[in-house]
Design a protein around this nucleic acid. Structure first.
Lengths: 354, 354
DNA sequence: GTGAAAGCGCTAACAC
DNA sequence: GTGTTAGCGCTTTCAC
């Protein structure tokens, strides 16, 4: 039986032996530094051909160790299961590829301990930089990154110990709330003639800014807001679902308008709203700070703030590209408003809901 | 100024020097093999404390090189931007964590060249196994994995050169089509009184099986199907959008029923259907092979096959756990049917569309 | 109980 | 133009 390509692991030494040359020559040829060494065309060809034939693949653990560069870039996200973070991963992948870095995206489930543990692990693999999105404890993450001198940027949720690029939450909430007000209709019951903010976490900056925008805009339109109307029930769909159910029985129906803090909150809200007669839902005006393609065509209209994922990550990568020295800045990127159809399922049938 | 923790990189040698012991002792202590070496409690404590204090973190490139194990496990997916693959990533993350492996998920955009290139790259990082989901060229991927002796499994789209675990596409399509038929209403125009399959790729196995289930079920219900009715326009939302538009003008309206090949196709379809009067859309019965939480409450009802992501990946991991020797089996996991509400926005207003 | 030393696969001085 | 050599940080055998 003819001797086929060797069964061994195939290192540059094997290649060198086959090509009757040395490992350093092979190494130089295989990673483009051979010009500098003025290696003969003929050797280059020979080695390349052999590499091809034996399907040689460099061992990046070894290379990384030697060069103290891994070619790895990390990103942590709360979850893969919503379209905002899905888009983040997609764009991150692309931008990493453009830099010939290997992207690693890991979800940390909004759990500080898991965030820290994951980041430590990524650092132990010698990632070259890290993008921290939607972190519950960004400063905790920064602490470990700084200790290990790993460049990192917060995205979506800011921290105080590293540059952050986030959505212009205040502006976005302002616009969204203005829409909410102008599209809404006076409710018959006075206790229901109000606007409610639902979801998010009172402790996080994004939520705080969104609430501020919400409140200020309502105030400017002469709507009072008390703490009853702010219901930061967290980042679980089920929590939003329960909270809106609770609100419903409390005020005896849906309110005039609903501001959902994120797409996950919207998901929870939809689960509850599904159980109600549609005409009732359509009398309530609904918006969400986040966008989802299917949510643009729900049975009731939803106005959404679509984040500029490209803008967010372009800024984040720019900071990573520049390396450690980056200033502790806070960069705000504007999202854009996607209006729901003026009317839900109702008016398609010529019904008036006024 | 007091001397604080050293500024250097911190290796086990530094630690050894500080603890006045040797690198091998430190190594043994830090990764639990110290019992075997009968190292004194006292030394263990001293070293541990120092490691803690200097925040020592192992360099896994070095460890991996030495042990020829990386602790890395890879998965490729077509895209992060749909809920099916989002769920895959989420579950993959969890299952990898349970095995203390570092997950790496990369999207390959249904592009064979990118699939191969990505997998090569992952292999060069010495991943220990690979899950290949929705690959356009699974056998191409298998070829490179086998050469490098990397255990791998196809998921969602099967290959012939590695074990595959996929959705029970035929069964699923059968159930979904039966629903489509039973819920649909006779159309006034005879050329529109038919069922259409939209999306997917004629070249892939999943699509073929789904079409088979679709066709067989229609035949059993005495509906003829000709090739006109099968429109495998690919995996882009925009393609589905265009195709359904085309169909619409071709047959002068919507057909009796629409079978969308995946959630991406559904996304495209929704974009087009949005432009139509709702009562018109509601006269067409629609289903999709894939589930999305928001699609459960669109203005028109959609029946969906929800894949068993946990089941799929549990089976895939089992094969990876067993290592290289795995048989070239094909495992089918049943999805489950999620019925749309019997009626869309229409009947909520007491309108009859018959 | 612990240390010395070899070597994982690679790159980059430095030699010739 | 090309080979030799010294490590990168770690684990593990072997020696004491």
């Amino acid at each position: 039986m003819a001797k086929t390509t060797s069964d061994r692991k195939s290192t540059i030494y094997d290649l060198a032996a086959l090509a009757e040359t040395s490992a350093s020559t092979v190494s130089a040829i295989l990673n483009g530094t051979w010009q500098k060494r003025r290696i003969s065309e003929e050797t280059v060809r020979r080695v390349r051909k052999l590499a091809e034939k034996t399907k040689y693949t460099v061992n990046r653990q070894a290379r990384g160790l030697r060069k103290s560069r891994s070619g790895l870039i990390g990103m942590i996200i709360p979850t893969h299961e919503d379209r905002f973070f899905g888009a983040m991963s997609q764009v991150f992948d692309r931008m990493a590829r453009e830099r010939t870095l290997q992207p690693i995206v890991v979800s940390t489930l909004r759990t500080p301990a898991l965030e820290i543990e994951t980041v430590r692990r990524l650092i132990s693999y010698q990632i070259e930089s890290l993008i921290v999105t939607g972190a519950t404890d960004p400063d905790g993450v920064s602490k470990v990154c700084r200790h290990h001198k790993v460049t990192h940027v917060n995205v979506d949720l800011p921290g105080t110990k590293a540059p952050s690029v986030i959505s212009d939450n205040y502006w976005g909430a302002t616009q969204l709330t203005a829409t909410l007000v102008s599209r809404s209709k006076t409710q018959t019951s006075s206790e229901r003639d109000r606007f409610y903010f639902l979801g998010g976490a009172a402790s996080d900056y994004a939520t705080q800014r969104r609430i501020q925008g919400f409140t200020d805009t309502l105030a400017a339109a002469s709507f009072a807001v008390d703490s009853e109307q702010i219901r930061t029930c967290g980042y679980e769909a089920s929590a939003a679902q329960a909270e809106i159910g609770h609100l419903y029985s409390q005020i005896g129906g849906l309110p005039r308008g609903l501001f959902l803090a994120s797409s996950v909150s919207l998901e929870g809200a939809v689960r509850f709203l599904k159980t109600l007669p549609l005409d009732e839902v359509c009398r309530c005006t609904i918006c969400s700070y986040d966008w989802d393609p299917f949510a643009t065509y729900l049975r009731f209209p939803v106005h959404m703030m679509r984040q500029d994922v490209n803008g967010l990550l372009a800024a984040a990568f720019k900071i990573c590209d520049e390396g450690l020295a980056a200033a502790k800045q806070l960069l705000e990127v504007r999202p854009h408003l996607v209006l729901g159809d003026r009317d839900g399922g109702a008016d398609a049938f010529g019904l008036s809901l006024a």
